[in-house]
Design a protein around this nucleic acid. Structure first.
Length: 146
DNA sequence: TAGGCCATCTGGTCCT
DNA sequence: AGGACCAGATGGCCTA
């Protein structure tokens, strides 16, 4: 988004560095300091890009309920927290209600009818993707944690 | 136009 | 010493 800003600043500093070296108007120490600053800026940019990549990956696995706008970073973290808590609760209940039928009866009202019928025609797949397909997520099922 | 969100720069601190 | 991490400042873009 801000690539032109940074490139302008960077190129400005770089040309300044060139100027200094050509005209010999600055000490070598200042040049080194400026170079280190530029390197630190680049590292920080890469670090933040890595962080944003991680946020994008998190957005992909967190429910969005058909929102056309992508979640902000804060919303993504809140949603991930709620999602993990909900899944944890589901797992705990699944352990408590040992048989499949008990567990299904407990959660029947949360199934989409088509999902439920689909489920009834097949075995439970233990992987989380199948769970995600099995359940229909609604915002009201997840309280935003404070 | 104000407010939210974001990218980037920067200086400070901590760690290796 | 240099890199990683963090928080504050700044300015751009977008939307209501």
């Amino acid at each position: 988004m801000k690539t032109c800003k940074s490139s302008h600043l960077d190129s400005g500093l770089e040309s300044d560095l060139q100027c200094r070296s050509v005209v010999k108007c600055g000490s070598e120490r200042m040049e080194n300091a400026a170079k280190r600053r530029l390197a630190a800026n680049a590292r920080e940019r890469r670090r933040m890009q890595g962080l944003n990549t991680a946020f994008d990956r998190l957005r992909k696995v967190v429910p969005q309920w058909g929102q056309d706008k992508k979640l902000s970073k804060y919303e993504t973290l809140q949603m991930a927290l709620s999602y993990i808590m909900a899944l944890t609760r589901i797992l705990a209940e699944a352990e408590r209600y040992s048989t499949e039928r008990e567990w299904i009866n407990l959660h029947r009202e949360h199934f989409h009818p088509e999902s439920y019928h689909q489920y009834m025609g097949q075995k439970v797949a233990p992987d989380t993707d199948s769970y995600a397909q099995l359940f229909s997520y609604h915002p009201e099922h997840f309280q935003i944690a404070n």
